[in-house]
Amino acid sequence: MQDCVHLEYRVDGQNFVSAGSATESVKTFLKGMGVNPQDVRRVAIAMYEGEINMVIHANGGYAYADIYVDKCIITLVDTGKGIKDIDLALQPGYSTASDEVRALGFGAGMGLPNMKKYADECIIESEVGKGTKVTLVTRFD
């Protein structure tokens, strides 16, 4: 097997039907590789929250998955409005989501906390008005 597999996805903004399809594709790939189901799920939850965030807040963006034998690095990049206060955004329960998003079952302020909880490393870089880059590293058991 190759040392690294690189997958790329365009994530559409405000499309609440397709939201999650990039994550599903990565999940299927990892499953196919025989990665342990718990780790597959950890990657899926963290990436899905990130993907949803891009759809909701950033008018979409790009999702990249770099998959190695022992780990998976997900990078989510958008050119949206950025996060003013990352520490605040990381507080469970804090959310700026619209009512429409809340009606979808999101916007509970658990997105970033969930990413942090499930990924081994969660790096959030953001600049207001420029965009956000989230890097999620999950090491396989």
């Binding site: 609440f16 999650g20 999940k27 899905y48 979808l104």
Partner: peptide, 16 residues
């Protein structure tokens, strides 16, 4: 769930 939209299905998929 009482929620009824495509993200419910996606969530279920993520959680196997």
């Amino acid at each position: 769930t009482g929620l009824c939209n495509p993200q419910v299905i996606r969530t279920a998929v993520m959680m196997d």
